[in-house]
């Protein structure tokens, strides 16, 4: 399984970025290879318009099976994400990527 997190940083200790569209980074964990990688999203963050749809496009290209984020996607982004076969978990605000992953594993995150 590939898990994507919206995150302020690029490591396990980085905090989850509560914003979907304007997240600083997208952190990816590949459960098979145990590899943790990060994709910079700051270019999108600084766009005045359409950050949600742009980030959705990026997520699509990364093809994760699961997305873990904070506040949840906005209306347009949600519309886009419907087209992606992926489970979405929210409310990981104030957690680190590691904590969010643990909570997801133990079934303590809300799925939308």
């Amino acid at each position: 399984m590939k898990i994507a997190f919206t995150s302020e940083g690029t490591s396990w200790d980085s905090l989850i970025d509560p914003r979907f569209g304007r997240t600083e980074n997208i952190v990816l964990f590949d459960e098979e290879s145990k590899e943790l990688t990060a994709v910079d999203n700051s270019a999108v963050k600084n766009d005045a318009h359409g950050a949600g749809t742009a980030t959705a496009q990026k997520i699509f290209e990364l093809k994760p099976d699961v997305l873990i984020t904070g506040n949840g996607p906005g209306e347009n982004a949600a519309k886009a994400l419907k087209h992606i076969k992926m489970r979405i978990f929210v409310d990981a605000n104030d957690l680190t990527v590691q904590q969010a992953y643990n909570n997801y594993k133990s079934g303590n995150l809300r799925e939308v």
């Binding site: 999108v44 318009h49 359409g50 749809t53 742009a54 959705a56 519309k79 886009a80 087209h83």
Partner: peptide, 19 residues
């Protein structure tokens, strides 16, 4: 599109009229 009002998700083009 400078406004990310049209995106491509694989075989689908999505238009976001509000954007």
């Amino acid at each position: 599109c400078n406004y990310h009002a049209v995106i491509q998700l694989g075989p689908t083009i999505l238009v976001f009229p509000e954007l």
